[in-house]
């Protein structure tokens, strides 16, 4: 487990941006955190890091949105409105996992058992200040452990976020 600290909303966006630049086809990010924690903001950053030029909006109501203007297709899910794991099947969730693009899943902790075996859990918590956030990474699999290490290396150096410990 690795934690990072961002002091402003822009820092959270920047963290996502740096993460997005490092993502590869088939990657899956499972995002968790309370309402208003900044999950969509982090996804907006990641999409921008992947080169997406469209406006990335919250998919709470639409359940899933696809962005195709970046380096890889971005599949942005939001499980907030879903009630049962079966609903994932109804929206074709499995078909997007580990495919040609990256899957960014908000409220993934609603159905943890339905998430892929290898993925990166990203938990966003409020810090001491109103705009401060603590971002915890829990990698499942070697690929994601390396991703966490790379993010640690690029922390502080004007990246808008700092490494806050293991």
């Amino acid at each position: 487990m690795t934690s990072f600290l961002t002091r402003t909303a822009d820092g959270t966006f920047q963290f996502g941006h740096t993460l997005g630049k490092k993502l590869a086809a088939g990657d899956v990010l499972c995002l968790t955190g309370d309402l208003g924690a900044g999950k969509t903001l982090l996804v907006q950053g990641a999409a921008a890091g992947l080169g997406v030029t469209e406006t990335v909006t919250s998919p709470t109501f639409t359940l899933m949105q696809v962005y195709e203007t970046g380096r890889l297709p971005v599949y942005h899910f939001d499980l907030y409105r879903l009630d049962a794991p079966m609903d994932l099947h109804n929206i074709g969730f499995e078909e997007y996992m580990g495919g040609d693009g990256v899957a960014l899943i908000e409220w993934a902790d609603k159905f943890p058992a339905a998430m892929p075996e290898h993925c990166l859990w990203v938990e966003i918590n409020r810090g001491r200040e109103t705009t401060e956030r603590v971002i915890m990474l829990r990698p499942k699999g070697e690929r994601y452990r390396r991703l966490g290490e790379e993010l640690k290396e690029s922390a502080d150096s004007g990246a808008g976020y700092c490494h806050a410990g293991v």
Partner: peptide, 18 residues
Amino acid sequence: GQTRDDAAGEAFDKVARV
């Protein structure tokens, strides 16, 4: 023009939940 982040209706539902 359109929203850059949340839709208005989503803000209504999330505030209601809290």
